[in-house]
Computed example of a mutant assay.
Amino acid sequence: MKIDTICIIDDDPICVYGTKILLNRNSFFGSDILVYEDGYEALVNLTSLSKTEEGFPDVIFLDLNMPVMDGWGFLDEFVKLPLKKKPHIFVVSSLFGPKEVKKGKSYGIIDDFISKPLVESKLASIFERVMGKSENIID
């Protein structure tokens, strides 16, 4: 599997910037990085992309705490989209615990929870997992 498009849904410009640098420094994926500052903006744009599935992300990095529509609100609506191919969704957040992990599992589409900041070793583990080489992500 080739990873062509990655989507970052996060309102923290420093985290977005750091994630983009990590992605651009590595050869794990193609060249497209979509960035949305809140769940609503992401939902509107991804819904549009889902109609043709052209340019639809293979991987989504989703923050939980954002203005307008948080990560939970995004997930509530995203699971309703009639997608042929589901993206790998990783919650990347500074605050989560067992309660959030349990809630996340109820959606059935979250691959894992990752603590911010995303670092190179975690990114490598994510891509190994997505490409089927490994089953576990080490935090």
Rank of each mutant, 00 (worst) to 15 (best):
I60R: 02
E100P: 06
M1E: 11
L75C: 06
E41F: 09
W72Y: 13
I21A: 12
I3Q: 04
S106D: 09
D112Q: 04
K2F: 12
L123G: 08
S121V: 12
I9C: 09
L22E: 10
S50K: 03
P67E: 15
I89C: 03
I89A: 03
P98L: 09
G108F: 09
V59R: 01
D10S: 10
K122R: 11
E41I: 14
G55V: 01
P82E: 07
P82A: 05
M1G: 15
S106G: 06
I60T: 04
S93Q: 05
S48V: 06
D32K: 15
F113C: 02
S93L: 03
D111E: 13
V119F: 06
V79W: 03
F78M: 04
P67Q: 12
L81P: 06
P67A: 14
L83V: 10
W72Q: 07
P13F: 11
S31K: 15
I21T: 14
K103C: 02
I137A: 08
I14G: 00
G73R: 08
L46M: 13
D139F: 07
I9E: 08
I138S: 14
V59K: 00
K51W: 00
L64P: 07
L123T: 10
K51Y: 04
S50C: 04
L118G: 06
G132T: 11
I6Q: 02
S27M: 08
E53G: 00
V91Q: 01
F96Q: 05
G108Q: 07
P13Q: 08
I14K: 05
F74A: 11
N24M: 10
S93W: 01
S125R: 01
I126P: 10
F61A: 05
I21L: 14
F127Y: 11
R25C: 13
I114C: 04
V119R: 14
V130Y: 07
K20N: 13
T47Q: 13
